[in-house]
């Protein structure tokens, strides 16, 4: 089961976790749109502790203006499900 569908608006969590994560700081707190689901992959934040936890991964498109306040390009990031929350 996946929590988000293609086209869903999602927000990258603002958390600043202890230790390793693959959620880049520049995306935290910003809203994007799910492009597609990339399958289920090990969550690196837990794998680095020797804990196996698999989650759906979503390709999420962020407009540059959302990330940086300006720019017309977009940046696409892969987001493990626990990196995301619903956006209004």
């Amino acid at each position: 089961m996946t929590r988000f569908a293609a086209g869903a608006r999602v927000r990258a969590r603002c958390a600043d976790p202890e230790g390793h994560t693959r959620l880049p700081r520049y995306a935290r707190g910003h809203v994007g749109e799910v492009l597609e689901i990339r399958g289920t992959w090990q969550l690196p934040d837990q794998a680095v502790r020797g804990v196996s936890q698999r989650e759906p991964v979503y390709a999420v498109r962020f407009p540059a203006a959302e990330l940086w306040g300006s720019g017309s390009h977009s940046v696409i990031l892969d987001m493990w499900e626990s990196y995301l929350e619903e956006a209004p």
Binding site: L23, W41, V57, A59, H73
Partner: peptide
């Protein structure tokens, strides 16, 4: 031209 930047932050 629309520019799309793909950040390879995961296993893709």
């Amino acid at each position: 031209t629309e520019i799309r930047v793909w950040d390879a932050n995961s296993e893709t």
